[in-house]
Amino acid sequence: MCLGIPAKVIEVNESKQGKVDYLGTKIKTNFSLLEDIQLGDWVIVHAGFAISVLNEEEAQETLSLLREMAAAQEAADKQSKITTPLK
């Protein structure tokens, strides 16, 4: 039940009622717990309310960290294959 899903804002009116798109399904969502909300934002929806707007910059930063780690690991794997021949 604490499942919060990331979904895209596709409709929002002045009283902060609207809809999000979650994997193609439109879900009625209440945005009144968010200060500022715009069409196209990604939000976390929980129990009918959007509780947080996804911060794109932070997401990209985490992703590049992950990519770097994967690349470093791959390089290390290659290295160890060269130095320790397969048994």
Binding site: L63, L66, R67, M69, A70, Q73, E74, A76
Partner: peptide, 17 residues
């Protein structure tokens, strides 16, 4: 954001751990 589930990423994280 598939990377959050990506196998290579997960392996790298596990190795680091």
């Amino acid at each position: 954001m598939k990377e959050f589930k990506d196998k290579k990423v997960i392996q790298a994280l596990l190795a680091e751990i």
